[in-house]
Design a protein around this nucleic acid. Structure first.
Length: 577
DNA sequence: GCCGTTTTCGGCCCGACTGTTTTCAGTCG
């Protein structure tokens, strides 16, 4: 999508203006615009052409600049700024502890524009002695560079949640906490997170800090104070703990949950009402008028409660004002998993083990989707074996009343867009999810046409991991998503939210875009071992962050309704054929 | 540069911490 490219221009302009010490509010305007463009569910190019939708934070001037980027591929003001502020200088801003002021001073004196050059200069002690910089700052810069190099990168939520849970349980058990919750991006369920924020209320904060900094998971104590301590875990993750008084727990929870952009909007609303909101409560003048519960913060600015997953300033404030917040799908509403592998292909579990696991998780049905023959490396199921699987699943279903299995497949979309099983075979299956596993490097038109062709098949119910991206490993393949969404809506094909912790594909933003185009979503864990079925919650988090309601997600259907729904596409297609 | 249930001009979120400072600037979340 173009959105990220356009946003990049504005982010860079903001940084360059910052280095030039321009008007801070102008800088903020560029940043906010960049963020809003990045978070836009629709293609910015289309929005600009249509001119019907107002993007918050983008007025006449910035709209003109977006047009310029789309038309010419660049921006005049950007090119001019680049002459004054070399792009390399922006890299230095990525170092924790180095802001625009420090970067500028270093550049002005030594012309340094790269991490390596700055590291050498620090080691040679050439940085201390510059105006406002002494030994300690120099050392901090070095630490910052080190941190940046050794991976300050974000980690997948799925890996972090269990750790956050462990720490919270340990604190509950061993220290005098009254209330305790995870905050920050973990609470907002972002797909990746940089650190874990935990909020506690306690009458004995010192004791809580003591226990926290001595947990077995701790490798270093970064800082330890009365109200805030930070540690690094053995796998290099930073965990911040904050302790507040019970009376301001709600205000603090809001504050530490963020996002920052969301908080700013809420506080702006407070200012207009003559109020002040901070982490210590809600204030009218000097007088505290609330803050014990999170709900009070929203009430103070005349808004309904906004779930943490929506707090990204992606339109949730406006929606809340108009009473149009979505009723987000809940984990408890999910009746089954639409993508699990069994021993028939490369999964580790038998169908009865899968059903037993589903039973334990409180699910009512599971679609067992094994690979098709061309995916030899994953033990693709031959046509002969698929008949055996059909019989085994039918036999299982006859004896099981509480959990049902669907005989499914994850059929390969071959490089010419045909499917890896003939229609006669697909017709005999309950659920068909189609996926691209080869030819990732094909050009956009070809990849898109493969997927479109698959969706036109009346037996294909959903497309697995539609963009192919893998967090921190592989970019999405080149697809025309506008076309994919339109075709999905037209043919009644669903798109998958793959809940495997490294995929989460579709993403939150794309799920929302798909929904807006009239597409329904399926959630599948893509589990290859039983434990991975528990990633189902990650899929729900993506759905919630994508503003999806229960009706948008097929997994909320009971078994009978689901089977009826799955048969429907075939009939509808049959009519038009 | 945006934006308006006090405003089309004059505002624009809030506080903590750190390092460098004799009262504050820079950075961060």
């Amino acid at each position: 999508m173009e959105n990220r490219k356009v946003a990049r221009f504005f982010y860079d302009i903001a940084s360059m203006l910052e280095i030039k010490r321009e008007n801070p509010f102008r800088i903020r305007a560029y940043r906010r615009a960049a963020q809003n463009i990045e978070n836009l569910a629709d293609d910015i190019t289309k929005v600009v052409v249509a001119e019907e939708k107002k993007i918050p934070g983008i007025g006449k001037d910035l709209m003109q600049k977006i047009k310029e980027i789309i038309d010419t591929g660049t921006l005049q003001i950007y090119e001019e700024l680049k002459k004054e502020v070399p792009p390399g200088l922006l890299e230095l801003l990525a170092i924790p502890g180095v802001g625009p002021r420090t970067a500028k001073i270093i550049f002005d004196h030594y012309g340094i524009v790269s991490l390596d050059d700055l590291e050498r200069a620090c080691l040679a002690h050439k940085i201390q002695g510059l105006p406002g910089i002494k030994g300690k700052t120099e050392k901090n810069i070095l630490n910052g560079i080190q941190l940046l190099k050794t991976g300050l990168e974000r980690k997948p939520l799925g890996l972090i949640l269990p750790l956050a849970g462990e720490i919270i349980e340990a604190l509950k058990k061993r220290s005098p906490v009254d209330r305790i919750e995870v905050a920050g991006s973990v609470r907002r369920r972002r797909e990746t997170v940089k650190d874990i924020d935990i909020l506690v209320s306690s009458s004995r904060p010192k004791r809580v800090m003591e226990v926290f900094t001595n947990l077995p998971q701790v490798s270093d104590v970064i800082g330890k104070g009365e109200t805030k301590s930070s540690i690094r875990t053995r796998d290099g993750l930073e965990v911040d703990l904050r302790v507040v008084e019970g009376d301001c727990y709600g205000a603090a929870l809001c504050y530490f949950t963020g996002s920052k952009a969301h908080n700013i909007r809420i506080r702006e609303l407070a200012v207009r009402r003559g109020l002040k909101i901070n982490e210590y409560g809600i204030f009218r003048g000097e007088k505290r008028i609330g803050g014990k519960e999170e709900r009070e913060v929203f009430e103070a600015v005349d808004l309904p409660y906004i779930p943490p997953e929506l707090r990204e300033d992606r339109g949730e404030i406006e929606a809340a004002m108009e009473g149009k917040l979505p009723e987000l799908v809940e984990l408890q509403e999910i009746k089954g998993d639409l993508h699990v592998h069994s021993k028939y292909s490369d999964g580790a579990a038998t169908i009865s083990e899968i059903a037993e696991k589903a039973r334990k998780m409180g699910l009512r049905w599971v679609a067992v989707c094994d690979h098709s023959p061309s995916l030899k490396i994953a033990g693709g199921v031959s046509i002969e074996d698929i008949r055996k699987k059909r019989k085994a699943i039918d036999a299982f279903n006859r004896t099981s009343s509480d959990v049902k299995l669907l005989c499914g497949t994850e059929v390969d979309i071959l490089s010419d867009g045909t499917l890896d099983y003939p229609d006669e075979v697909l017709r005999g299956l309950d659920f068909v999810v189609a996926a691209i596993h080869s030819g990732f490097k094909q050009d956009q038109a070809l990849l898109t046409s493969r997927m479109v062709k698959a969706m036109e098949n009346p037996y294909v119910h959903s497309i697995a991991h539609p963009t192919g991206r893998i967090l921190a490993e592989r970019e999405a393949y080149a697809l025309n998503l506008e076309e994919i969404f339109a075709k999905a809506a037209e043919t009644g094909t669903c798109l998958e939210i793959n809940a495997y912790f490294k995929r989460l594909d579709l993403s939150d933003i794309l799920s929302r875009a798909a929904k807006n185009k009239g597409v329904r979503l399926t959630i599948g864990t893509d589990a290859h071992i039983l434990d991975q079925m528990e990633y189902l919650n990650l899929g729900v988090f993506v759905a919630r962050r994508g503003w999806l309601e229960s009706n948008d997600v097929i997994n909320t259907m009971g078994y009978e309704d689901l089977m009826q729904f799955l048969r429907k596409k075939r009939k509808d297609e049959g009519k038009t054929r």
